[in-house]
């Protein structure tokens, strides 16, 4: 076992025991960190791996959360059943909005995705179709129930969220190291060359968008049942900016970096509470300083390595 793996295992063990020695407040902070970490991992797929400047991820998150909230409060469908549906609807929404704009280059895509998240938020505030509850939002969402056990306390949610994070890390890891993941990285480095090598770049970009959106929809479901009350303010442009910052500051394309980034961006302001109103000031300055000292992110991704043993290069040298 290498050092990195040992550190990973220690961190996982410490986290698994965390609810035993932390009070409810800090467990809830960890829950928020977990939620942002999953969202950031799903954004990482679009921003970090495919290199699409996407600053509107909160829109998909909002679709997932509102799907859950509306269907749960109106038709009393259990939360767990709504999770796949939230993901699918967020994915369909992602497809519909990304389809016409996927060809836009860099910064143009950035501003359009900002536009999408703002339009979604304004639509929610204006109580579109009369089902979103306007700026008050929706309340009375029920708790998730797994095999008869109702997830209610922050400690329960801690395991619910962090196990989901673990599953996400595993699946994203598999996806990153698949043919699909390599194609996305190729597009990020040089989409013209990728196109020339027969990679359908808009198709892959669109798929990356949809996968990211589906995952954000799942997280929306978790968030809605955790809060039991949701309002449009939780899905503003600002949330998208935070996710964007987590990915870039943590190290785009690197899952370790992004999870650490979530700890820093969501956790640090909590530690700065003693500075009261100056804490966001310090936070802003810290962002600039961290970027200057680690422009590649805190833990940049390692370059891909390929096992070339099958070429028997070593034997030729002997």
């Amino acid at each position: 076992m290498n050092r990195k793996r040992i550190i990973d295992i220690i961190i996982i063990l410490v986290l698994a025991c965390a609810p035993l020695f932390l009070n409810t407040y800090w467990v809830d902070v960890l829950n928020n960190i977990g939620i942002y970490a999953i969202l950031a991992l799903s954004l990482n797929f679009i921003l970090g791996h495919t290199g699409l400047f996407h600053m509107g991820h909160a829109a998909f998150y909002a679709i997932g959360a509102y799907t859950t909230a509306i269907l749960n409060t109106m038709y009393h469908i259990p939360i767990i059943w709504l999770m796949p549906l939230s993901g699918v609807l967020a994915g369909i929404f992602g497809y519909l909005v990304a389809r016409p704009i996927i060809h836009l280059r860099g910064d143009y895509l950035l501003i359009v995705t900002i536009g999408i998240v703002e339009i979604v938020r304004i639509a929610l505030v204006n109580n579109i179709f009369g089902i979103t509850g306007g700026s008050n939002g929706i309340f009375g969402i029920s708790r998730p129930k797994l095999w008869g056990f109702v997830i209610r306390r922050p400690q329960d949610f801690f395991y619910y969220i962090w196990i989901f994070l673990g599953i996400s890390v595993y699946l994203f890891y598999r996806l990153e190291n698949s043919r699909f993941g390599r194609a996305l990285n190729y597009i990020k480095e040089d989409d013209l060359a990728a196109e020339g090598s027969g990679v359908d770049s808009s198709g892959y970009k669109l798929k990356a968008f949809i996968i990211g959106a589906i995952w954000a929809g799942f997280v929306g479901n978790i968030y809605a049942s955790k809060m039991t009350i949701i309002s449009p303010e939780s899905f503003s442009f600002w949330e998208s900016v935070i996710l964007f910052v987590i990915v870039i500051l943590g190290g785009s394309g690197s899952m370790r970096g992004i999870i650490l980034g979530s700890f820093l961006i969501i956790g640090l302001p909590e530690l700065f509470r003693q500075f009261a109103s100056a804490r966001m000031l310090i936070f802003g300055a810290a962002m600039v300083v961290m970027m200057i000292f680690r422009p590649q992110g805190i833990i940049p991704p390692k370059p891909r390595t390929y096992n070339l043993d099958f070429l028997k290069l070593g034997e030729a040298e002997k």
Binding site: G106, I248, L249, M280, G284, M291
Partner: peptide
């Protein structure tokens, strides 16, 4: 550096100014 690093630095500066 990477272009997006400068974007994050700009966002940090923005938070800094607004809160000052």
């Amino acid at each position: 550096a990477d272009r997006l690093s400068a974007v994050v630095s700009a966002l940090g500066a923005s938070i800094f100014f607004a809160n000052s």
